[in-house]
């Protein structure tokens, strides 16, 4: 996730102090990982350098978190361009799991066990997410769903691979 663009986007609704930006970010997007003040500071100084934001005012006491930032026209354009650019879909071509399965087959270990262990782990995670989703608000639900759908996709792959292990073993052994 581009923290720079996210902060920039938050500034569009009006100038904010650094600590204000961090709090809003954490509330809306930082479910798992809250931002450090240092991250906010370094990001803001980069944006400042690039002319995408400007300092609107400084509160008494100094420190970066006391600065009030405002977005520049160039910043608005940059946010616009970022939003308009589609994210490159993750091709998921490099799979550790696939590597593990093939290695297990090559070394005559039980590949099905690997898949089952992974499967259980995935489902454990899905259970946690489901539980969180049921307690949380709409934002929580959407974020958890995103994760759940991805995990489900992984699980389907696990199922499919489990069903095709015999054929895979033949191909690998060749």
């Amino acid at each position: 996730m581009s923290i720079g663009h996210t902060l920039l986007g938050l500034l569009e609704s009006g100038p904010r102090h650094g600590y204000d930006l961090k709090r809003t970010f954490d509330e809306k997007f930082g479910h798992d990982r809250p931002l450090h003040y240092g991250q906010v500071y370094s990001t803001m100084s980069r944006l400042l350098k690039n002319g995408l934001v400007e300092v609107d005012g400084i509160e008494a006491g100094g420190g970066p978190e006391r600065k009030r930032y405002a977005i520049t026209d160039a910043g608005v354009t940059d946010v616009e361009r970022w939003l308009a650019t589609p994210e490159a879909p993750e091709p998921y071509l490099q799979s550790t799991l696939y590597t593990k399965v093939v290695l297990a087959l090559l070394t005559h270990r039980n590949a099905a066990d690997i898949l089952d262990t992974q499967r259980a782990e995935h489902l454990r995670m899905m259970r946690i997410l489901t539980d969180r989703k049921r307690r949380g608000d709409l934002a929580d639900q959407l974020i958890c769903d995103h994760a759940l759908f991805h995990l489900e996709a992984d699980l389907r792959w696990l199922e499919l691979t489990a069903a095709r292990l015999d054929r895979l073993a033949e191909v690998v052994a060749r």
Binding site: A120, H122, L123, M126, R127, L129, T130, L148, F149, L151, E152, L155, R156
Partner: peptide
């Protein structure tokens, strides 16, 4: 469906 199974305690 894994997402339905995720409502369980164990599978």
């Amino acid at each position: 469906e894994a997402r339905v199974a995720a409502y369980s305690d164990r599978e």
